[in-house]
Write a protein that binds this DNA or RNA. Structure first.
Lengths: 234, 234
DNA sequence: CGCTGTCTTGAAGCGTTTCAACACAAGTGG
DNA sequence: CCACTTGTGTTGAAACGCTTCAAGACAGCG
């Protein structure tokens, strides 16, 4: 695959320091001693994906650990009936690839760059030897996996037990934890897929919330929460 | 907590060999060399829970790895609105406790014995030193976690994209992988919670499937699949 | 600036839930 | 072991929430 060499600090051109930055900003690689860091850096390569490009797709067996350096990736599945279900978004410092990484199975999900995205890549075998050599990194990875499990199970519980209206309200409240005025991290179409509903319903419910005086919608996907408790008590 | 010493091979009475059997039947502990096996056995203790007893509950911070030796455990969450969402069932050889095990958080789910259940327990700190000493076990755990992630994400995708009818059909097909005549592994009430619907709907849909000639319901929760492709093409 | 994809709004339709009542099975205690 | 009690399973009718389809407004990327 061809890579656009847009800026002079592109790691493909030999200025490899951004690779270090990428690895350092990943929580599970924080505060490693120099020997560990060098071991990681020696097996990391990086690659740039353009908007809409797939990092991996369901059905593939080849696998690696993909760390987002800059840009954003969306992970989704296609149901039997062909509908798209968004599992999660990855921003800088977050990683994916875990499924096929340890089990001898194929990918069941798709990973797509939603904007120009630079990714650091550690191949499966390299990762395995790394983890065998530095078990403390394996423990951090286990910690990260268990967090993911919690988060996906919480999503499942919402889907199985809450109405669409409450799911939307709960999602807004979760966003509001980082400030009452925030920007939706995705399009409303994607939000609909993420919350297991349709864009139409998202649109209608947000308008209802606004008419009730609980939120205020602003341009550029910004939302301001005016009444947290009303949303929580739905 | 009091334990009923019902039978003479109870591990609490000093006949500890069933502890070994319990550990050996766990896939991630298969084919270990004797030193690894002894290291595990030295930190394992076992405990018996009666039907309905909780192994852990949401809000608790204490944590350990729980391995089912005999019996069955159900893992569930309570939604904001108080409804029960079953995440999964554990049979002999399967384990749980992963959430609070590696992250410094509290449990978000409940674990309940659905019948008299014997559990082998490895405390958090013991497990950590075990994994640091034997990284290959950590890799197996990672593999198991990634399988779980796949499975929960598949469930989420079903909830978000499929109708209740298709979810039930897909579930039956999954059960049928181990034979066209099988016993439902849980009550229909629990199945409803697992599939994100109500017992009434389960009852009605199974009757519809039966009237269409696709399945046959027999006593004691047995179901026979008569037409797989009809269920798959719903 | 134009085109493509996202967002909004309305009205109709449908799948699923809810409530209530009863049949049935399983576990408990006499 | 039977009767009792408790919980699980079934069935009907009504109500509700959400999706679907269609059409137009808007925004954003090339």
């Amino acid at each position: 695959m061809e890579v656009n060499h847009i800026n002079p600090s592109c790691p493909h051109c030999g200025h490899g320091d951004s690779k270090t930055k990428c690895v350092q900003r990943v929580p599970i690689f924080n505060h490693l001693d120099p020997s560990q860091m060098n071991a990681i850096l020696s097996v990391v390569r990086s690659k740039i994906y353009r908007r809409g490009e797939l990092i991996f797709r369901a059905g593939e067996s080849s696998s690696a650990l993909f760390i987002v350096n800059r840009g954003r990736i969306k992970i989704y599945r296609l149901s039997e009936s062909g509908k798209e279900q968004i599992i999660r978004f990855l921003g800088p410092g977050e990683f994916t690839g875990e499924y096929a990484l340890f089990s001898e199975t194929i990918h069941e999900s798709f990973a797509e760059a939603v904007e120009e995205t630079m990714v650091c890549i550690i191949e499966r075998d390299d990762l395995h030897s790394l983890l065998l050599q530095y078990p403390s990194i394996a423990l951090r990875l286990l910690s990260e996996f268990s967090k993911r499990l919690e988060s996906v199970e919480r999503q499942t519980t919402w889907f199985g037990t809450e109405t669409v209206e409450r799911r939307i309200a709960l999602y807004l409240l979760e966003c509001a934890e980082q400030g009452l005025l925030f920007t939706l991290p995705m399009s409303k179409k994607d939000l609909a897929s993420f919350l297991g509903t349709t864009p139409e319903t998202i649109s209608r419910k947000l308008r209802e919330f606004e008419e009730a005086g609980w939120i205020k919608q602003r341009p550029h996907r910004q939302i301001e929460i005016l009444d947290q408790s009303a949303l929580a008590n739905l």
